[in-house]
Design a protein around this nucleic acid. Structure first.
Lengths: 156, 156
DNA sequence: ATGAGTGCAAAGTGTTTGCAACTAT
DNA sequence: ATAGTTGCAAACACTTTGCACTCAT
């Protein structure tokens, strides 16, 4: 059983409705390791469920999110991106986003563990390290210092 | 000489124009320790320069940003927020944002130093830790677990 | 005087909402 | 049968852009 099927099964267990739209969103997210924004999900899911509406995708990812099947990340710029939750993929990671090229990269899940500890002890703030991307400049863009001319996706 | 004046002086040195709008934006940012969004800056700057236009504030913070006088932070939700750059205030910090109440809190500038080091060594990614807020739940909101009912500014 | 800055209107993203029609249970 | 989902249109929040006018230099 692949991750999409597992998601559908989970919907059933939870007594939630299994609709073509939700199936399609799960399948799309299961078929890629990338982080997709609603627009991306729509483009791919529309191939499975032609005529699928953008609003429906927004609502599907929201519901699936509340049910713990899908996770979203806020990059510093541009639309929120989604992927399957760790419960379905068995994999966790954090995110960094390049200010120059806009690419989102996965980084080890434990990267901020110490920081989270320190924050909790000193300020009582409970860090959720995977919810927002860290930002900076990726190796590729950093290697050509005079970059930013033309190739950028969503510069910041 | 306060920070706003210092900013104006810096504009002169750089051969940039000193306009009422830019002056007002600098003054507003100098007069608070908070992080203000364009709307906030406009509301306060409009008291100094009545009729000031929202677009002008957007352009002022952009220019002042490019000149290194103003810094901006991307919270996970809502509008970008601005404050005077470290060069003018002599103070640096990072930001964390509460998912429940939306409040932005300052945290020590060196919080992510080790993480930045590790990232640079392992992936070549150059972290800019102050550019995006970390997210989680603040002490106040964490202390009342059944929160989220009514008081939230911009929940996430 | 001249070029940078401003105001305004308009458009551009990304996202949410209200409501009638539909469908999974 | 009926409550939850969907499609659509419209609104929303935030930001950018084009253009004519003004003002700091």
């Amino acid at each position: 059983m692949d991750a999409a099927e597992a998601g559908v099964a989970r919907l059933r267990v939870l007594g939630e409705r299994v609709t073509p739209a939700r199936r399609a969103v799960l399948r799309v997210l299961a078929e890629t390791a990338d982080h997709l924004c609603v627009e991306d999900v729509l483009a791919r899911a529309d191939l499975i469920v032609p005529g699928l509406h953008r609003t429906t995708v927004y609502r599907a990812v929201e519901t699936l999110g509340e049910l713990g099947l899908v996770t979203h990340v806020h990059p510093a710029h541009g639309p929120v991106v989604y992927h399957l939750a760790a419960g379905l993929t068995g994999e966790t990671h954090l995110h960094v986003r390049c200010r120059r090229c806009g690419a989102i990269q996965d980084v080890p899940a434990d990267l901020l563990d110490e920081v989270a500890d320190r924050l909790a002890r000193t300020t009582g703030f409970q860090l959720q390290p995977d919810h927002a991307a860290l930002t900076g400049v990726c190796r590729t863009c950093g290697d050509r210092p005079n970059a930013g001319t033309g190739a950028a996706i969503r510069p910041a």
